[in-house]
Nucleic acid binder design. Structure first.
Lengths: 191, 191
DNA sequence: CATTTTAACTAACACTTGTTAGTTTAGAGA
DNA sequence: TCTCTAAACTAACAAGTGTTAGTTAAAATG
Protein backbone atom coordinates (compact mmCIF):
# COMPACT_ATOMS: atom_id res chain seq x y z
CA UNK A 1 0.00 0.00 0.00
CA UNK A 2 1.26 3.43 -0.91
CA UNK A 3 1.09 5.67 2.13
CA UNK A 4 2.65 8.47 0.08
CA UNK A 5 1.60 8.14 -3.54
CA UNK A 6 2.94 11.65 -3.86
CA UNK A 7 4.26 12.58 -7.25
CA UNK A 8 7.15 15.00 -7.61
CA UNK A 9 4.64 17.58 -8.77
CA UNK A 10 2.66 17.16 -5.55
CA UNK A 11 5.82 17.62 -3.54
CA UNK A 12 6.50 20.88 -5.33
CA UNK A 13 2.97 22.09 -4.73
CA UNK A 14 3.11 21.24 -1.04
CA UNK A 15 6.48 22.92 -0.64
CA UNK A 16 5.18 25.97 -2.48
CA UNK A 17 2.13 26.11 -0.19
CA UNK A 18 4.43 26.21 2.81
CA UNK A 19 6.50 29.03 1.36
CA UNK A 20 3.39 30.92 0.23
CA UNK A 21 2.10 30.70 3.78
CA UNK A 22 5.24 32.31 5.14
CA UNK A 23 5.73 35.13 2.64
CA UNK A 24 2.80 35.20 0.26
CA UNK A 25 2.64 34.16 -3.39
CA UNK A 26 4.25 37.28 -4.84
CA UNK A 27 7.22 37.28 -2.50
CA UNK A 28 8.15 33.66 -3.21
CA UNK A 29 10.35 33.26 -6.28
CA UNK A 30 10.78 30.14 -8.32
CA UNK A 31 14.38 30.17 -7.12
CA UNK A 32 13.17 30.18 -3.52
CA UNK A 33 10.95 27.23 -4.29
CA UNK A 34 13.71 25.39 -6.10
CA UNK A 35 16.11 25.92 -3.20
CA UNK A 36 13.52 24.57 -0.79
CA UNK A 37 13.24 21.51 -3.02
CA UNK A 38 17.02 21.17 -3.26
CA UNK A 39 17.10 21.64 -7.03
CA UNK A 40 17.56 24.45 -9.57
CA UNK A 41 14.71 26.71 -10.67
CA UNK A 42 14.69 25.45 -14.23
CA UNK A 43 14.23 21.89 -13.02
CA UNK A 44 10.86 22.80 -11.56
CA UNK A 45 9.55 23.11 -15.08
CA UNK A 46 10.00 19.41 -15.68
CA UNK A 47 7.02 18.98 -13.35
CA UNK A 48 4.92 22.11 -13.47
CA UNK A 49 4.03 24.50 -16.26
CA UNK A 50 4.08 27.80 -14.43
CA UNK A 51 4.09 29.45 -11.04
CA UNK A 52 0.46 30.35 -11.60
CA UNK A 53 -0.45 26.70 -12.09
CA UNK A 54 0.88 25.96 -8.60
CA UNK A 55 -1.31 28.64 -7.02
CA UNK A 56 -4.32 27.37 -8.89
CA UNK A 57 -3.68 23.78 -7.80
CA UNK A 58 -3.47 24.89 -4.17
CA UNK A 59 -6.49 27.14 -4.05
CA UNK A 60 -9.07 25.58 -6.33
CA UNK A 61 -8.89 22.12 -4.80
CA UNK A 62 -9.52 23.50 -1.31
CA UNK A 63 -12.30 25.75 -2.54
CA UNK A 64 -13.97 22.72 -4.08
CA UNK A 65 -13.62 20.80 -0.83
CA UNK A 66 -15.59 23.56 0.87
CA UNK A 67 -18.22 23.57 -1.83
CA UNK A 68 -18.66 19.81 -1.63
CA UNK A 69 -18.84 19.88 2.16
CA UNK A 70 -21.41 22.66 2.11
CA UNK A 71 -23.53 20.79 -0.44
CA UNK A 72 -23.80 17.82 1.89
CA UNK A 73 -24.69 20.07 4.82
CA UNK A 74 -27.47 21.95 3.05
CA UNK A 75 -29.04 18.75 1.79
CA UNK A 76 -29.29 17.30 5.29
CA UNK A 77 -32.44 17.46 7.41
CA UNK A 78 -30.58 18.67 10.50
CA UNK A 79 -31.61 21.69 12.50
CA UNK A 80 -29.96 24.92 11.46
CA UNK A 81 -27.86 24.97 14.63
CA UNK A 82 -26.64 21.49 13.75
CA UNK A 83 -25.82 22.68 10.27
CA UNK A 84 -23.70 25.47 11.75
CA UNK A 85 -21.93 22.94 13.94
CA UNK A 86 -21.25 20.87 10.84
CA UNK A 87 -19.83 23.91 9.09
CA UNK A 88 -17.47 24.46 12.02
CA UNK A 89 -16.38 20.84 11.80
CA UNK A 90 -15.92 21.15 8.02
CA UNK A 91 -13.57 24.09 8.47
CA UNK A 92 -11.64 22.42 11.27
CA UNK A 93 -11.14 19.29 9.19
CA UNK A 94 -10.08 21.04 6.00
CA UNK A 95 -7.78 23.42 7.87
CA UNK A 96 -6.24 20.56 9.85
CA UNK A 97 -5.47 18.65 6.66
CA UNK A 98 -4.20 21.61 4.69
CA UNK A 99 -2.85 24.31 6.95
CA UNK A 100 -0.48 25.74 4.38
CA UNK A 101 -2.96 25.75 1.55
CA UNK A 102 -5.51 27.61 3.63
CA UNK A 103 -3.09 30.52 3.85
CA UNK A 104 -3.02 30.84 0.06
CA UNK A 105 -6.78 30.52 -0.12
CA UNK A 106 -7.19 33.37 2.34
CA UNK A 107 -4.38 35.66 1.29
CA UNK A 108 -3.45 34.99 -2.32
CA UNK A 109 -6.71 34.29 -4.11
CA UNK A 110 -6.49 37.70 -5.80
CA UNK A 111 -3.37 36.53 -7.64
CA UNK A 112 -5.30 33.85 -9.45
CA UNK A 113 -5.43 34.77 -13.10
CA UNK A 114 -7.60 32.53 -15.29
CA UNK A 115 -9.32 30.94 -12.32
CA UNK A 116 -10.15 34.13 -10.42
CA UNK A 117 -13.78 34.35 -11.49
CA UNK A 118 -14.28 30.64 -10.88
CA UNK A 119 -12.91 31.03 -7.36
CA UNK A 120 -15.09 34.06 -6.68
CA UNK A 121 -18.15 32.20 -7.85
CA UNK A 122 -17.47 29.31 -5.49
CA UNK A 123 -16.87 31.74 -2.64
CA UNK A 124 -20.05 33.69 -3.29
CA UNK A 125 -22.13 30.54 -3.43
CA UNK A 126 -20.58 29.29 -0.21
CA UNK A 127 -21.29 32.51 1.64
CA UNK A 128 -24.79 32.65 0.26
CA UNK A 129 -25.49 29.12 1.54
CA UNK A 130 -23.98 29.99 4.90
CA UNK A 131 -26.13 33.09 5.22
CA UNK A 132 -29.27 31.18 4.31
CA UNK A 133 -28.73 28.69 7.10
CA UNK A 134 -28.47 31.56 9.57
CA UNK A 135 -31.56 33.29 8.22
CA UNK A 136 -33.57 30.09 8.33
CA UNK A 137 -32.34 29.45 11.85
CA UNK A 138 -33.59 32.86 12.89
CA UNK A 139 -36.95 32.30 11.19
CA UNK A 140 -37.25 28.92 12.92
CA UNK A 141 -36.48 30.55 16.29
CA UNK A 142 -33.34 28.45 16.69
CA UNK A 143 -31.02 31.43 16.45
CA UNK A 144 -31.21 34.84 18.11
CA UNK A 145 -32.60 37.58 15.92
CA UNK A 146 -29.32 39.43 15.39
CA UNK A 147 -27.99 40.81 12.11
CA UNK A 148 -27.38 37.65 10.01
CA UNK A 149 -24.45 39.16 8.18
CA UNK A 150 -22.68 40.01 11.39
CA UNK A 151 -23.21 36.46 12.58
CA UNK A 152 -21.85 34.98 9.38
CA UNK A 153 -18.94 37.39 9.24
CA UNK A 154 -18.00 36.63 12.79
CA UNK A 155 -18.12 32.86 12.36
CA UNK A 156 -16.54 32.78 8.93
CA UNK A 157 -13.54 34.97 9.70
CA UNK A 158 -12.78 32.88 12.75
CA UNK A 159 -13.07 29.68 10.75
CA UNK A 160 -11.00 31.01 7.88
CA UNK A 161 -8.21 31.90 10.27
CA UNK A 162 -8.00 28.45 11.80
CA UNK A 163 -4.90 27.73 9.75
CA UNK A 164 -3.03 30.26 11.86
CA UNK A 165 -3.98 28.59 15.04
CA UNK A 166 -4.09 24.85 14.44
CA UNK A 167 -0.32 24.46 13.94
CA UNK A 168 0.27 25.85 17.43
CA UNK A 169 -1.69 23.00 18.98
CA UNK A 170 0.67 20.09 18.53
CA UNK A 171 -1.81 17.73 20.17
CA UNK A 172 -4.67 18.49 17.81
CA UNK A 173 -7.88 16.62 18.33
CA UNK A 174 -10.04 17.90 15.49
CA UNK A 175 -13.28 16.66 16.96
CA UNK A 176 -12.54 18.25 20.28
CA UNK A 177 -11.51 21.57 18.73
CA UNK A 178 -14.65 21.67 16.59
CA UNK A 179 -16.72 20.97 19.68
CA UNK A 180 -15.10 23.73 21.75
CA UNK A 181 -15.20 26.19 18.90
CA UNK A 182 -18.90 25.54 18.27
CA UNK A 183 -19.64 26.15 21.92
CA UNK A 184 -17.87 29.49 21.87
CA UNK A 185 -19.15 30.65 18.49
CA UNK A 186 -22.70 29.52 18.99
CA UNK A 187 -23.16 29.56 22.74
CA UNK A 188 -21.30 32.76 23.49
CA UNK A 189 -19.07 33.29 26.47
CA UNK A 190 -21.00 35.24 29.09
CA UNK A 191 -22.70 33.45 31.94
CA UNK B 1 -8.79 75.28 9.93
CA UNK B 2 -7.07 72.60 7.96
CA UNK B 3 -9.39 69.68 7.41
CA UNK B 4 -6.71 67.97 5.35
CA UNK B 5 -3.29 68.99 6.62
CA UNK B 6 -2.07 66.08 4.53
CA UNK B 7 1.45 66.33 3.25
CA UNK B 8 2.38 64.81 -0.09
CA UNK B 9 4.12 62.05 1.83
CA UNK B 10 0.89 61.22 3.65
CA UNK B 11 -0.94 61.07 0.35
CA UNK B 12 1.60 58.58 -0.95
CA UNK B 13 1.31 56.45 2.16
CA UNK B 14 -2.47 56.42 1.98
CA UNK B 15 -2.44 55.55 -1.70
CA UNK B 16 0.08 52.80 -1.02
CA UNK B 17 -2.10 51.40 1.75
CA UNK B 18 -4.99 51.16 -0.67
CA UNK B 19 -2.88 49.33 -3.24
CA UNK B 20 -1.35 47.06 -0.60
CA UNK B 21 -4.85 46.13 0.48
CA UNK B 22 -5.77 45.06 -3.03
CA UNK B 23 -2.66 43.10 -3.99
CA UNK B 24 -0.34 42.90 -1.02
CA UNK B 25 2.94 44.69 -0.40
CA UNK B 26 5.12 42.46 -2.60
CA UNK B 27 2.86 42.63 -5.63
CA UNK B 28 2.66 46.43 -5.65
CA UNK B 29 5.55 48.05 -7.50
CA UNK B 30 6.78 51.57 -7.06
CA UNK B 31 5.63 52.14 -10.63
CA UNK B 32 2.13 50.98 -9.69
CA UNK B 33 2.16 53.40 -6.80
CA UNK B 34 3.46 56.23 -8.96
CA UNK B 35 0.78 55.62 -11.58
CA UNK B 36 -1.90 55.71 -8.91
CA UNK B 37 -0.47 59.06 -7.78
CA UNK B 38 -0.31 60.34 -11.36
CA UNK B 39 3.48 60.77 -11.33
CA UNK B 40 6.60 58.83 -12.27
CA UNK B 41 8.21 56.28 -9.95
CA UNK B 42 11.37 58.29 -9.43
CA UNK B 43 9.32 61.26 -8.24
CA UNK B 44 8.12 59.28 -5.25
CA UNK B 45 11.63 59.51 -3.84
CA UNK B 46 11.29 63.26 -3.39
CA UNK B 47 8.93 62.39 -0.54
CA UNK B 48 9.81 58.96 0.80
CA UNK B 49 13.09 57.15 1.29
CA UNK B 50 12.11 53.62 0.36
CA UNK B 51 9.22 51.25 -0.23
CA UNK B 52 9.99 49.68 3.11
CA UNK B 53 9.56 53.00 4.87
CA UNK B 54 6.00 53.19 3.55
CA UNK B 55 5.11 49.79 4.94
CA UNK B 56 6.61 50.70 8.28
CA UNK B 57 4.67 53.97 8.42
CA UNK B 58 1.43 52.12 7.74
CA UNK B 59 1.85 49.24 10.13
CA UNK B 60 3.67 50.63 13.14
CA UNK B 61 1.33 53.57 13.68
CA UNK B 62 -1.71 51.30 13.75
CA UNK B 63 0.01 48.79 15.99
CA UNK B 64 0.76 51.59 18.42
CA UNK B 65 -2.86 52.72 18.33
CA UNK B 66 -3.85 49.24 19.48
CA UNK B 67 -1.24 49.22 22.20
CA UNK B 68 -2.35 52.60 23.50
CA UNK B 69 -6.01 51.60 23.39
CA UNK B 70 -5.30 48.38 25.25
CA UNK B 71 -3.30 50.22 27.90
CA UNK B 72 -6.29 52.41 28.74
CA UNK B 73 -8.59 49.39 28.86
CA UNK B 74 -6.42 47.36 31.25
CA UNK B 75 -6.00 50.28 33.61
CA UNK B 76 -9.76 50.79 33.95
CA UNK B 77 -11.78 49.36 36.83
CA UNK B 78 -14.49 47.97 34.55
CA UNK B 79 -15.71 44.38 34.70
CA UNK B 80 -13.89 41.99 32.41
CA UNK B 81 -16.94 41.70 30.17
CA UNK B 82 -16.93 45.49 29.84
CA UNK B 83 -13.26 45.37 29.00
CA UNK B 84 -14.00 42.93 26.20
CA UNK B 85 -16.73 45.23 24.93
CA UNK B 86 -14.21 48.06 24.95
CA UNK B 87 -11.76 45.95 22.97
CA UNK B 88 -14.45 45.32 20.37
CA UNK B 89 -15.11 49.06 20.18
CA UNK B 90 -11.37 49.75 19.91
CA UNK B 91 -11.07 47.46 16.91
CA UNK B 92 -14.18 48.85 15.24
CA UNK B 93 -12.92 52.40 15.62
CA UNK B 94 -9.39 51.75 14.40
CA UNK B 95 -10.63 49.64 11.49
CA UNK B 96 -13.22 52.24 10.54
CA UNK B 97 -10.58 54.98 10.44
CA UNK B 98 -7.95 52.95 8.65
CA UNK B 99 -9.49 50.21 6.55
CA UNK B 100 -6.64 50.04 4.09
CA UNK B 101 -3.89 50.11 6.67
CA UNK B 102 -5.48 47.24 8.57
CA UNK B 103 -4.98 45.03 5.53
CA UNK B 104 -1.22 45.63 5.63
CA UNK B 105 -1.14 45.07 9.37
CA UNK B 106 -2.84 41.72 8.94
CA UNK B 107 -1.25 40.48 5.76
CA UNK B 108 2.09 42.18 5.24
CA UNK B 109 3.64 42.47 8.69
CA UNK B 110 6.12 39.72 7.77
CA UNK B 111 7.62 42.00 5.13
CA UNK B 112 8.73 44.48 7.74
CA UNK B 113 12.49 44.44 7.89
CA UNK B 114 14.06 46.53 10.65
CA UNK B 115 10.78 46.91 12.50
CA UNK B 116 9.71 43.27 12.46
CA UNK B 117 10.78 42.44 15.99
CA UNK B 118 9.27 45.66 17.31
CA UNK B 119 5.97 44.80 15.67
CA UNK B 120 6.02 41.25 17.03
CA UNK B 121 6.70 42.53 20.50
CA UNK B 122 3.70 44.85 20.36
CA UNK B 123 1.54 42.07 19.04
CA UNK B 124 2.62 39.58 21.70
CA UNK B 125 1.98 42.08 24.46
CA UNK B 126 -1.43 42.88 23.04
CA UNK B 127 -2.46 39.25 22.85
CA UNK B 128 -1.12 38.59 26.31
CA UNK B 129 -3.21 41.43 27.74
CA UNK B 130 -6.25 40.20 25.85
CA UNK B 131 -5.82 36.69 27.17
CA UNK B 132 -5.42 37.94 30.74
CA UNK B 133 -8.73 39.76 30.61
CA UNK B 134 -10.43 36.54 29.53
CA UNK B 135 -8.73 34.47 32.21
CA UNK B 136 -9.64 36.97 34.90
CA UNK B 137 -13.19 37.07 33.62
CA UNK B 138 -13.39 33.30 33.98
CA UNK B 139 -11.90 33.43 37.47
CA UNK B 140 -14.41 36.13 38.45
CA UNK B 141 -17.28 34.00 37.11
CA UNK B 142 -18.16 36.64 34.51
CA UNK B 143 -17.18 34.44 31.59
CA UNK B 144 -17.96 30.80 30.86
CA UNK B 145 -15.18 28.41 31.71
CA UNK B 146 -14.19 27.58 28.13
CA UNK B 147 -10.66 27.36 26.74
CA UNK B 148 -9.39 30.98 27.02
CA UNK B 149 -7.21 30.70 23.94
CA UNK B 150 -10.12 29.58 21.82
CA UNK B 151 -12.13 32.51 23.09
CA UNK B 152 -9.38 34.98 22.32
CA UNK B 153 -8.63 33.45 18.95
CA UNK B 154 -12.26 33.56 17.97
CA UNK B 155 -12.75 37.18 19.00
CA UNK B 156 -9.42 38.43 17.72
CA UNK B 157 -9.62 36.93 14.26
CA UNK B 158 -13.08 38.37 13.81
CA UNK B 159 -11.93 41.78 14.97
CA UNK B 160 -8.80 41.69 12.83
CA UNK B 161 -10.89 40.99 9.76
CA UNK B 162 -13.23 43.93 10.27
CA UNK B 163 -11.37 45.84 7.57
CA UNK B 164 -12.80 43.42 5.03
CA UNK B 165 -16.29 44.03 6.13
CA UNK B 166 -16.61 47.65 7.15
CA UNK B 167 -16.24 49.06 3.61
CA UNK B 168 -19.28 47.08 2.50
CA UNK B 169 -21.49 48.91 4.98
CA UNK B 170 -21.76 52.33 3.37
CA UNK B 171 -23.93 53.59 6.24
CA UNK B 172 -21.46 52.71 8.97
CA UNK B 173 -22.43 53.57 12.50
CA UNK B 174 -19.36 52.51 14.47
CA UNK B 175 -21.12 52.54 17.82
CA UNK B 176 -23.95 50.44 16.50
CA UNK B 177 -21.64 47.93 14.83
CA UNK B 178 -19.56 47.59 17.98
CA UNK B 179 -22.74 47.00 19.96
CA UNK B 180 -24.07 44.32 17.60
CA UNK B 181 -20.70 42.64 17.31
CA UNK B 182 -20.28 42.51 21.08
CA UNK B 183 -23.68 40.91 21.43
CA UNK B 184 -22.80 38.19 18.92
CA UNK B 185 -19.25 37.57 20.12
CA UNK B 186 -20.03 37.65 23.81
CA UNK B 187 -23.66 36.63 23.99
CA UNK B 188 -23.59 33.90 21.38
CA UNK B 189 -26.33 33.24 18.90
CA UNK B 190 -28.43 30.34 20.12
CA UNK B 191 -31.65 30.97 21.99
C1' DC C 1 21.47 -5.03 -23.95
C1' DA C 2 18.98 -1.19 -26.13
C1' DT C 3 15.73 2.22 -25.40
C1' DT C 4 12.76 5.25 -23.24
C1' DT C 5 11.60 8.04 -19.29
C1' DT C 6 12.48 10.81 -15.38
C1' DA C 7 14.53 14.42 -13.42
C1' DA C 8 18.21 16.90 -12.89
C1' DC C 9 21.58 20.34 -15.00
C1' DT C 10 23.88 24.92 -17.42
C1' DA C 11 23.15 28.92 -19.93
C1' DA C 12 20.58 32.33 -21.38
C1' DC C 13 16.45 35.35 -22.62
C1' DA C 14 13.55 39.42 -22.16
C1' DC C 15 11.47 41.94 -18.77
C1' DT C 16 10.65 44.03 -14.25
C1' DT C 17 12.33 45.54 -9.85
C1' DG C 18 13.76 49.34 -6.40
C1' DT C 19 16.53 53.03 -6.56
C1' DT C 20 19.93 56.95 -7.87
C1' DA C 21 21.68 61.00 -10.43
C1' DG C 22 21.01 64.95 -12.50
C1' DT C 23 17.76 68.28 -14.58
C1' DT C 24 13.64 71.18 -15.18
C1' DT C 25 9.61 73.81 -13.95
C1' DA C 26 6.53 76.58 -11.31
C1' DG C 27 5.42 79.13 -7.32
C1' DA C 28 6.63 81.73 -2.80
C1' DG C 29 9.32 84.96 -0.13
C1' DA C 30 12.96 88.44 0.00
C1' DT D 1 13.76 90.69 -9.84
C1' DC D 2 16.47 87.11 -7.58
C1' DT D 3 16.61 83.19 -4.98
C1' DC D 4 14.98 79.23 -2.86
C1' DT D 5 12.19 75.29 -2.50
C1' DA D 6 8.87 71.75 -3.70
C1' DA D 7 7.91 68.49 -6.82
C1' DA D 8 7.98 66.87 -10.99
C1' DC D 9 10.85 64.93 -14.93
C1' DT D 10 14.31 61.72 -18.10
C1' DA D 11 17.71 58.32 -18.15
C1' DA D 12 19.90 54.79 -16.34
C1' DC D 13 21.72 50.85 -13.28
C1' DA D 14 22.40 46.54 -11.12
C1' DA D 15 19.91 42.90 -9.40
C1' DG D 16 16.28 39.82 -9.66
C1' DT D 17 12.09 37.86 -12.22
C1' DG D 18 9.62 33.78 -14.66
C1' DT D 19 10.66 31.00 -18.18
C1' DT D 20 12.82 28.42 -22.35
C1' DA D 21 16.26 25.60 -24.85
C1' DG D 22 19.21 22.16 -25.01
C1' DT D 23 21.96 18.67 -22.51
C1' DT D 24 23.19 14.86 -19.31
C1' DA D 25 22.95 11.06 -16.10
C1' DA D 26 20.64 7.52 -13.93
C1' DA D 27 16.80 4.46 -13.52
C1' DA D 28 13.00 1.78 -15.47
C1' DT D 29 11.26 -0.86 -19.23
C1' DG D 30 11.24 -3.72 -23.37
Amino acid sequence: MALKPETRKDEIIQTAAKLFKEKGYSAVTMRDLATAMGIKAASLYNHINSKQEILKAIIISIAEDFTNGMDIIIKSKDSNISKLENIVALHVNIAANNTNGMASLNNDWMHLEDQLSHYLQLRNEYESNFLNIIKEGIAALEIKDKNPEIIMFSMLTTLRSLYLWIPKKEDLDATNLAQNLSEVLIGGINI
